[in-house]
Amino acid sequence: MKSNVEKVISVSNLTKRFGSFTAVDHISFDVCRGEIFGFLGANGAGKTTAMRMLCGLSRPTEGNGRVAGCDILTQTEMIKRHIGYMSQKFSLYSELTVDENIRLFSTIYSMTDVQIMEASSRLYAELGMESMRRTRVSDIPVGWRQKLAFATATIHRPDIVFLDEPTGGVDPVTRRKFWEHIYKASSEGMTIFVTTHYLDEAEYCDRVSIMVDGCISALDSPAALKRKYHADTIDEVFRIVASEAKRDE
């Protein structure tokens, strides 16, 4: 990692305990501006919990850090102005139309009517969703919903986009296309923080971290990781690293 690059996420000893269970155990890492940062780990390794702490959805038990220049302990509402978040579970209003959802969220991000108009027409053109504008979200196919959720998370051009398993349950072709949108967002200067179970997707990231039992066991570029573990694919690296896990799901 180059030291002259601005760090948009920087955390140290971030910990989350639920009673006696330590979901996230003293993790420390930095993410640079414009990076695509892959956050890997088995089910229950603590990925989502860690991500929720970064987004200001969950209060850390210990540790500190900054996201988009704001403190994750005290300035969570400030952080929320600068990030986009796409949750694992589809969470747009399914009884609202595509347009109504986009309008609602962009108004909350304090965008003006003109900005909303411009941003949404650009989005619909990019995603090819023009004809679905007035369709209720519950009526559009799953693959399109993911795209729409991504669009909603990036409509306000946040500094960082957090994607929690964005391609779960999506066919390989649509997944591939989805990553094109991620690349595009990244090329426009957004930092991408993404968790995934598809290890081929990890190859698309600039750097990946692998979480095992609440700790980060490996963190480097895909190429460096493969060298280190003498593996041909990230899939193999993951198997080697994740086999240390003691925790059940």
Binding site: L57, Y85, S87
Partner: peptide, 10 residues
Amino acid sequence: GTIEAMNVTP
């Protein structure tokens, strides 16, 4: 889960 989508906005 929509409340979470709201809680992560400002």
